[in-house]
Nucleic acid binder design. Structure first.
Length: 482
RNA sequence: GGCGGCGUAGCCAAGUGGUUAAGGCGAGGGACUGCAAAUCCCUUAUUCCCCGGUUCAAAUCCGGGCGCCGCCUCCA
């Protein structure tokens, strides 16, 4: 049962066929001229989840995500702020990595920075010139689109139908309006590197090609990014790489749908954008939503479709995550042991759902469907519990949720007891004393204890078997076990 | 103009030829509780934007509308 994914290049679902046990995956990373926004977060989370899913299936994933630290926007922003492009890029590269941690995205195998690969890029460009795919004009180097017959095959664009220069003035020096810069001669004050064509800097598309070739080889298994990168970025990457090597740059191209706000594309110019910073709760107390709620939100819609961002949607995700943790906190109080035969129907249900979960993910990485399966297990678990089902079987339901969640990067936090030792004992003592008070019907005092603990994030629940406590918003609290 | 996508309950969202049309959020009623919280039970799409067609059978396929959105030179 393989994983089938929608390939932008062929416009079909294709089985991911991997040579050996290693999946080589390249995901376009950010240009570090500002904090990343919630639109940037989508590919980060979606493809991180895909990576985890592959790892769950036993693959080793070489996951490369670049950091663009040489770019027009960086130069412009640095000038505005009166700093150097280097300093600005370094600063936002750090901020970016911090946001990745806040989002609980696994660290890529490599996070190469463009500045570290300029020499390799120059080699790539030289090679393209030597093979007749690129030409030099006044210290600039352009890729000649006309020299690569397959140009347009990724985006489905036929050059005759393109209105050249629809949005941007055509550079008169280019042989063809569609030609794009591989190397740009430096203007005064811009970052520059020596090259055979004079001092200058690399163009954007060359960076990804070079990193792929250097770090992953001529053909990667998966090349991914936002759908707005299909043209021109990925089209141009493909052209360069395939002109150079004569081999496919990627087996499968994946492009996630755009994030919208109130149905419109999020854009700085529209003023409807939000930073990841400030949205996701962090250890320093800033942010609004737990990393898991944010992840749940992004995975609750199929990755290729547009996703509409709203505070309501985030709140909804937070509630949905909470529902799962509630079950975990109840079930994981019970010790693991072999359930009695009477629990067999429930256990068979669990096995069936595990299978369904895999099927959902296999079918074009259908995370909303997969989340539905997990929620289905949770709902059935609650029902099982309410009907007096065997605790050991319930415990196995929790285990299933944990194991399935791991493939998506969800439901891995401690469920009820992030505190250890003394704090736990003190909580036990408090609930015990409060129990005495309730027996004596001293409700005002009992309620005060509950309220005060609530303010500290500890939730008390009085049940028939006594009072249990758990940490509210458990998703925020790191698992002390690791 | 070219390319691509979307329209399923109050909201979000799976499903893409035959299942009682997943799941979440919300709402209403009931159970439990000293009151809560959590949970359980019941209710909330005779129907999938509209109109035709194919088929024994369509939310799913085909044709035609209507509405919305993205990309078309450096934006994830």
């Amino acid at each position: 049962m393989g994983l089938r994914l929608y390939n932008t290049l062929t416009r079909k679902l294709e089985e991911l066929s991997v040579h050996g046990n290693t999946v080589r995956m390249y995901v376009c990373g950010p240009t570090v001229y500002d904090f990343i926004h919630i639109g940037n977060a989508r590919p980060l989370i979606v493809f991180d989840a895909l990576r985890r899913c592959l790892e769950e299936q036993g693959y080793t994933v070489h996951y490369v995500q670049n950091i663009t630290d040489v770019d027009d926007k960086i130069i412009r922003r640095a000038q505005q702020e009166g700093t150097s492009p280097e300093v600005l890029a370094e600063r936002f590269a750090r901020e970016y990595l911090e946001d990745l941690r806040a989002l609980d995205v696994k660290e890529p195998t490599f996070s190469p920075r463009a500045r570290g690969y300029v020499n390799q890029m120059i080699e790539v460009i030289e090679d393209l010139i030597a093979k007749g795919y690129a030409y030099v004009v006044d210290g600039d180097v352009y890729f000649s689109v006309g020299s690569f017959p397959d140009y347009g095959k990724l985006s489905g664009r036929v050059r005759e139908e393109q209105e050249a220069g629809a949005r941007v003035e055509v550079d008169e020096r280019k042989r063809d309006p569609l030609d794009f810069a591989l190397w740009k001669a430096a203007k005064p004050g811009e970052p520059k590197w020596p090259s055979p064509w004079g001092k200058g800097r690399p163009g954007w598309h060359t960076e990804c090609v070079t990193m792929v070739l250097t770090l992953l080889g001529e053909t990667v298994d998966i090349h991914a990014g936002g759908s707005d990168l299909i043209f021109p970025h990925h089209e141009n990457e493909l052209a360069q790489a395939e002109a150079l090597t004569g081999k496919p740059l990627a087996r499968i191209w994946l492009h996630n749908g755009m994030l919208t706000v109130e149905g419109e594309k999020m854009a700085k110019s529209l003023g409807n954008f939000a930073y990841v910073r400030g949205l996701v709760k962090r250890a320093d107390g800033t942010g609004i939503y737990s990393p898991e709620a944010v992840r749940y939100f992004y995975l609750s819609r199929h990755w290729r479709k547009p996703l509409d961002f709203s505070a309501d949607a985030l709140r909804e995700a937070e509630e949905a995550v909470e529902r799962v943790y509630n079950l975990l906190s109840q079930a994981e109080r019970f010790p693991e042991r072999v359930p009695p035969p009477s629990a067999e129907p429930f256990l068979s249900f669990l096995r069936e759902q595990r299978g369904r979960f895999q099927e959902e993910l296999s079918a074009d990485f259908n995370t909303p469907g997969a989340l539905g399966v997990i929620q289905g297990i949770v709902g059935e678990g609650y029902r099982f519990q309410a009907q007096g089902g065997d605790p050991a079987a319930l415990r196995l339901a929790a285990r299933a949720v944990r194991e399935l969640g791991r493939a998506l990067g969800l439901f891995q936090k401690a469920s009820y007891s992030p505190t250890v030792g003394l704090a736990e004992e003190l909580l036990g003592l408090l609930t015990e004393l409060r129990g005495e008070l309730r027996k004596e019907r001293q409700f005002p005092l009992a309620d005060r204890i509950r309220d005060r603990l609530g303010e500290l994030g500890i939730e008390l629940r009085d049940g028939p078997q006594g009072t249990t406590w758990s940490v509210r918003r458990s998703g925020d609290v790191p698992d002390p076990r690791g």
